[in-house]
């Protein structure tokens, strides 16, 4: 069977043509280049696949993206701490009007939902904090203060009360921690004015319940003068607030 694409006679004649070969100098140049290629840049034993070729650029892009995301996240958190809304400057006319003061407290309540150790120093001024004059952090209460009546008028404040209660239950290290927190604030802020402004803002953001808790704690420690001042300020800020009967005797001036 003869293959139509083959012709033995033509092949025979073609092979009788001059069998040209490349010049010797060309052979040597090519072989020299082949030697040089493997000596200067040996080929890998495993041919690079597409995945391996893209590995380095892909890793570089991943690192850059991660860096940008972390930087943006840090900036966002920083700006959140610096531009928290201030509470209304004048006290509301009624408890219903006092309710809008709750959102900062609600925001405050959202902070402790994170892991406690992750809370930043810049966010802490929003938490209830005693006046800098005294060691106002209340110790463990001897008798539990009734909390139930407080939950109804200000349900949103209940969340904020929990970390406060937890803070009350914490032993001695708390003031030191706060001192460290304050140091970090001062380190972050260039001047003392900024720290004072934050402190004032924290006091303004204090919810009525926490305020009353603080007064109770002051009376329990025998610091009645400070408690009276705090009560007076409380009445000035919340003139319409109805103090629960169970708490009244622990709060009213003596």
């Amino acid at each position: 069977m003869t293959e139509p694409e083959r012709d033995a006679e033509i092949s025979r004649r073609y092979r009788a043509l001059d069998r040209e070969e490349p010049p010797r100098a060309l052979d040597e140049a090519i072989i020299s280049a082949a030697h040089g290629a493997v000596e200067t840049h040996p080929a890998p034993l495993v041919a690079p696949t597409a995945r391996r070729r893209w590995y380095v650029p892909l890793a570089a892009v991943a690192v850059i993206v991660l860096s940008v995301v972390v930087t943006l996240q840090m900036q966002r958190e920083q700006s959140d701490g610096e531009f928290m809304p201030l509470p209304p400057p004048s006290p509301p006319a009624s408890p219903k009007e006092a309710a809008p003061a709750a959102p900062p407290a609600a925001r405050d309540a959202s902070v402790p939902r994170r892991a406690p150790g992750t809370m930043k120093a810049k966010e802490r001024p929003m938490a209830p904090e005693p006046k800098p004059a005294g060691s106002a952090v209340p110790q463990q209460p001897a008798a539990p203060v009734p909390q139930a009546p407080l939950e109804k008028p200000f349900p949103a404040a209940d969340e904020s009360a929990r970390p406060a209660a937890a803070a009350v239950g914490r032993p001695a290290p708390m003031p030191e921690e706060r001192g460290a927190s304050r140091q970090s604030i001062e380190a972050d802020r260039p001047g003392r004015m900024a720290a004072d402004a934050l402190q004032k803002r924290a006091e303004q953001a204090e919810s009525p319940e926490r305020w009353l808790d603080r007064i109770v704690a002051l009376r329990r420690e025998g610091r009645h003068k400070e408690a009276d001042e705090a009560y007076a300020e409380f009445k000035r800020r919340y003139p319409e607030y109805r103090i629960p009967d169970a708490m009244r005797k622990h709060v009213l001036p003596r």
């Binding site: 069998r19 070969e21 490349p22 052979d27 090519i30 072989i31 082949a34 493997v38 040996p42 080929a43």
Partner: peptide
């Protein structure tokens, strides 16, 4: 040759050069 043996290229070249 890909693995670095230049002698393999020489043999290959000799076979196909003409």
């Amino acid at each position: 040759y890909r693995g670095g043996q230049a002698a393999a290229f020489e043999a290959l070249y000799a076979r196909h050069k003409g």
